[in-house]
Computed example of a mutant assay.
Amino acid sequence: MMSRLLAVFNARNKEFWRDRSSLAWNFAFPFLLVFGFYFIFGQGMPMFKVGVIGEQDAYISRPAFMQLSHIQFVPYDELETALNRARRHQIDLVLDLDRQLYWVNEESRNGYVAERLLVNADPDFNRRVVQGEPIRYVDWVLPGIIGMNIMFSSLFGVGYAIVRYRKNGVLKRLKATPLSAFEFVSAQILSRLLTVMLVASIIYFGSHWALSTLMLGNPFSLLLTLFVGALAMISLGLAVASRSRSEELTGGLMNMATWPMMGLSQVWFSLEGAPPTVQSIANALPLTHLVSAAREITTEGATLMQVSDHLLVLAGMTALFLTIAALLFNWDSDHR
């Protein structure tokens, strides 16, 4: 028995070490994660977040308050945008440098402490007050969780199924039937869309019923946004799995697609005030636009017109991924 066990053990080890794509991925991916998160969060999270109006303009000197450590200063072009963030407790203070004014939400605990620091450092700033109930973390994170579920269900549900069909010869047998590649891919898309939208609807409406989560916009707008986002994710899954018959390689490619989106698409935390390079990378990811549009609808009451920029980007990504999938799709193997 031991000899048989060792024979299978050695065979599996050789199979792993000879699979160069899987081997490289197992070594490279953890390093990519470590260095990526070090680059993004190497300086730690700030204790306070302060919106600043007028920082882009030329002025003589920065206030002493802006020299303090452990405070993140986020520039805003429009005062009303910053005030809305303060009303929802998403930032702790708003500073207008040109007029030497500041706004604080008196119901914010962080705002209370940040105001004490400001008054002590720059007593010449004049006080203004905004009011608004805080957005609970569950209200803020729910669109991210739904988007994350759509991402995993779409990519792995479609990608692995097609690779498994190709590896087991199912696609090769289907090729001998009157079924066209377009009909096969369309059926995969429609099937996964039905599943994804059903699960997303249950998660949202179940959470809304049980936890009274926030919904300031139109639920139909939210469902349409989720639909467009799911279509983009499914298309990405088709593009990744359009040619490979290796489940290990496909798994690595899926992880390469999903993990950056998990970290940079604001599923768990906001990237507001992050380095421009990080924000540019995040804006190139479909999950970022899906989560941002859904979050704006639920927590800010945005209409479809107001999130149309996100929807257009998702529609463009869908067209791009479907084109790639159509050009690369193969019934048989990696090489034909």
Score class of each variant (00 low, 15 high):
273 G>T: 07
241 A>R: 09
168 N>V: 00
270 S>Y: 04
301 G>P: 14
25 W>G: 12
54 G>E: 08
16 F>M: 07
297 I>L: 12
143 P>N: 03
114 A>P: 04
298 T>E: 09
140 W>M: 02
164 R>N: 12
62 R>E: 11
169 G>M: 06
283 N>V: 01
284 A>N: 03
20 R>K: 14
280 S>N: 09
28 A>E: 02
333 S>R: 12
177 T>I: 03
293 A>E: 04
52 V>N: 05
156 F>S: 10
127 R>A: 11
309 D>K: 08
284 A>K: 03
72 Q>M: 12
80 E>L: 06
319 A>L: 15
333 S>P: 07
285 L>H: 10
153 S>M: 14
282 A>T: 06
239 A>P: 13
175 K>A: 06
173 R>P: 03
260 P>K: 10
145 I>P: 00
131 Q>D: 06
196 V>D: 13
40 I>A: 09
159 G>T: 02
287 L>W: 09
225 T>N: 14
325 A>V: 07
301 G>Y: 15
236 L>A: 14
39 F>M: 04
228 V>R: 07
5 L>T: 02
18 R>P: 02
240 V>N: 09
144 G>C: 04
319 A>C: 11
50 V>F: 12
208 H>N: 11
132 G>T: 05
8 V>R: 12
281 I>P: 01
44 G>P: 07
268 W>Y: 15
298 T>C: 15
330 N>R: 15
6 L>H: 06
325 A>H: 07
46 P>Y: 05
286 P>C: 04
52 V>C: 08
